[in-house]
Each structure stands twice: as C-alpha cells, then as structure tokens.
Amino acid sequence: MAKQEFLLTGTGGQGLILAAIMLAEAGIYAGQNVVQSQSYGPEARGGASRAEVIIGNEAIRYPKVEKPTLVLTLSQEAYKKYGLNLTEDAILVVDSSQVNEVKPRSKNLYSLPITKTARTRLGSEQSANVVALGVVASFSGQIPMEDVLQAVRQRAPKGTAEQNVKALELGWQLGLKAGAKQDDRHSQNEGDEQCRI
C-alpha cells in the first residue's frame, strides 16, 4: 500500500477525532503501519479541530501530515484553515451541509451531503462523523470495508454499533458514487480534449 496522508478537519464536538481513530485502527487491521494524532482549538468544543492519520506499508519517518492525500472538512472555518493551499492532486471532500463557500478547484473537489445524509437517513446528525469516515475510507481505495467495519464495531459507543454500521455503509456508498461520477467527468473531458486536437 502506498503511503496515504489523511487530514480530517472540522469543529470540536463533531466526532472527527473518533473517526480518525477508527480509520487508523482499520489501517492496523489491514496490516499497515499507522500514525494518528490530533489537535484542538483553544475552545475545544466548537473551536477548530484536526485529526491526522498516515497509513502505509513502509516505515513512517515523520508522524505529522505534510502533503495530504485527502482532506475532509466539515465546517466553513476548517475549510478556510486547511482546505485552500493543497497540492493539485490532493482530494478535498467538503460537507455541502456545512461548507457553503468553496473556491473552485479544477479537479478532486467533492462537495457531499455528509451531515444531511446522517440527519435524513439515520434521524440524527450524531453519526455524521461515521458517514464521513465511510466517505474517506472509500476514497482511500486501499482499506478494505471489512477492516473499517471491525474498527467501527470495536469503537462505537455502547448501544450505537448498529446505527454506526449503517452510517459507515451510507458514507461508503456516497464516496463510491461521487468517485464514479468524477471518473466519468474526467473521461468526458479527456474525450473533449482529444476532439479538439
């Protein structure tokens, strides 16, 4: 598995630290080397928070994300702080329910209804972090679903395992559909360019 660097950002209280821990544990179940860390704004709940996960089969020599493969952001504040200065190849996933102003990027920007999906399909926004985890893990393309499921079942707060498994599956499907649409768009654009030549 090539090294992948994930940056999960939002505001304190959205559960992204737990989502990052689940992602890291899924990487361990998949037999990979993993590093996970997090930081909070001074306010903790309601302030900006970020969690980092690095997964790969080689030794991880530096424990912080330097060039993110994927950035997830669940708030406008976090987008402004972490989503603007990314490399062209980095995947940026924003929650369309929470992030309204996004600078257009030529590729690899996905605006997905993460919180809305949790609210409408599960009846509560509480599992939005696990919907987000499903999106991120599906975009990774290198972490098997069964390993993420195992991590979710292991870490879900008591009495919420079933709801969180549903949330994970919803997020996984959301990510797969978005990725497939983007692939179709890239293919069409390449076709258009060939027609122009």
Rank of each mutant, 00 (worst) to 15 (best):
P104K: 08
W172S: 11
A24G: 13
Q182T: 06
A90S: 15
E169D: 13
A2Y: 07
G141K: 08
V152A: 07
Q38E: 15
V135N: 09
T117R: 07
I143G: 01
A90T: 15
V102A: 11
Q182V: 02
G13W: 05
L109K: 09
G47S: 15
E101K: 14
V135C: 09
G47K: 06
R185A: 14
L74Q: 12
V65A: 03
R45C: 00
G56S: 08
K3P: 02
I60Y: 05
K158C: 04
A26L: 07
D147W: 02
E193W: 12
S96V: 03
G31E: 09
Q194A: 15
L8D: 05
M145S: 04
L133S: 07
P113F: 14
G179C: 10
I54W: 05
K3W: 00
E66C: 07
L7M: 10
E25V: 00
F6K: 04
C195I: 13
N108H: 13
K116A: 11
N189G: 04
T160G: 09
N164G: 08
G159A: 12
Q4E: 12
T115V: 08
A59G: 02
Q98W: 02
Q14S: 09
G31L: 08
T11F: 11
S96C: 03
Q154M: 10
P63H: 06
G171H: 11
R119S: 13
V152Y: 01
Q38H: 11
Q188C: 04
S127E: 04
A19C: 06
T160H: 12
R121Y: 09
R61N: 12
D192H: 14
T87L: 12
A180L: 13
E66L: 14
V34Y: 05
S140M: 08
Q188N: 10
D89M: 02
Q14R: 11
E58C: 01
S97A: 13
Q36Y: 08
L8S: 05
N164Y: 04
G56P: 09
Q14P: 03
S187Q: 15
E77C: 03
T9P: 04
A59S: 12
N189Q: 15
A137Y: 02
H186Q: 12
V131Y: 11
T115I: 05
S49G: 12
G10E: 06
I91M: 02
I60R: 03
A90L: 01
N57C: 01
I143P: 04
A30L: 05
G171K: 12
